[in-house]
């Protein structure tokens, strides 16, 4: 049995005149012990989906189960078994680190000692600050504390809504390592992120956009499905270069990706042709090379179609 099953979930906001549909029939399964990523830009419907699965929001259509329990009917059972870390830091800022953890342990009818080994690896990192108020912690520390609080009752499914948004690169890396560690313990993890580069750290990902799923696959599978030739191009005048490239016949897409622009072309074009085209347009320091696609390229491609 899958840990999470979402079946044609629909969520709309607003009334009569001004209806906004946040989720258009989303379906997916997450297997037990899987690290599943929901990847999509802001406003794609990630948070609505999480709130439905954690029983905080009622879906307007479709159904979903977590550990076999229905999110509407059996919400009480689900709340005992899942951990949820909302996108916004929502612990008590005026309580200390230790008090927060103790508080959440208590309302789950357990104690810190009981499940200490689960949170130990994370907690030792924030333990030096345990008498500091949660509101005074740095962003990365806050995320670690929130994760501890979400784990303190040993949930079998963990929902993390954009845990790495607004966190520095080093803390992000550490955070994903922690998630790996939790996965080894058999905890099913559903994590959402707007960062495409984090997709490759998941077992499987669902790319979502405007409340619909565009693709569900392993990161490798998604990348493998990208079949068009892709080049990275760079000149001294990047903005003009993009405009020039989009005018060339056979160029489908051109967007900034790091310090290069990624250029998606029809099979007829090759690197040499692009190179000479750019030189003819008067660009200097032209560099064009074939490049392997990443998740972001796939996302851009899926979004277009």
């Amino acid at each position: 049995m899958s840990a999470i099953i979402a079946n044609n979930l629909v969520k709309t906001y607003g009334k009569k005149k001004d209806v906004m549909t946040a989720l258009h029939g989303i379906s997916f399964n997450v297997e037990k012990g899987e690290l599943f990523g929901i990847i999509g830009p802001d406003g794609a419907g990630k948070t609505s989906l999480f709130r439905i699965l954690t029983t905080l929001l009622l879906p307007d259509g479709g159904n979903a189960t977590v550990n076999g329990y229905d999110v509407v009917k059996d919400y009480r059972a689900i709340r005992q078994q899942v951990g949820y870390m909302p996108g916004r830091f929502s612990l008590y800022q005026d309580l200390t680190v230790a008090e927060n953890l103790e508080f959440f342990a208590t309302i789950f009818n357990t104690s810190i000692a009981e499940h200490y080994d689960l949170v130990r690896d994370i907690y030792v990192q924030i333990e030096p600050f345990k008498d500091r108020r949660a509101g005074k912690l740095s962003g990365g520390m806050k995320q670690k504390l929130a994760l501890c609080c979400a784990l303190i009752h040993e949930p079998s499914v963990l929902f993390l809504d954009e845990p790495t948004t607004g966190v520095d690169a080093v803390s992000r890396k550490e955070f994903w390592e922690m998630l790996r560690g939790l996965k080894e313990r058999g905890i099913t993890i559903l994590v959402s992120t707007p960062y495409m580069d984090e997709a490759s750290l998941c077992d499987r990902v669902a790319l979502i956009q405007n409340g619909g799923i565009m693709s569900i696959n392993s990161p490798e599978g998604i990348i493998a499905s990208f079949q068009k030739p892709l080049f990275a191009a760079r000149t001294s005048r990047m903005l003009n270069m993009q405009q020039d490239l989009l005018q060339l016949e056979g160029v489908e897409e051109c967007y900034l990706c790091g310090e290069y622009s990624h250029v998606v072309v029809k099979p007829a074009l090759d690197a040499a042709q692009l190179d000479s085209y750019l030189r003819n347009k008067g660009h200097e320091a032209v560099e064009v090379k074939p490049v392997a696609p990443n998740i972001e390229d796939c996302f851009m491609d899926l979004m277009k179609n």
């Binding site: 954690t54 905080l56 830091f89 929502s90 008590y92 800022q93 789950f108």
Partner: peptide, 13 residues
């Protein structure tokens, strides 16, 4: 306002 009610609501309290 600060969202803590969200965190409380997912608990079996």
């Amino acid at each position: 306002e600060i969202g803590t009610i969200e965190q409380i609501n997912v608990t079996p309290i």
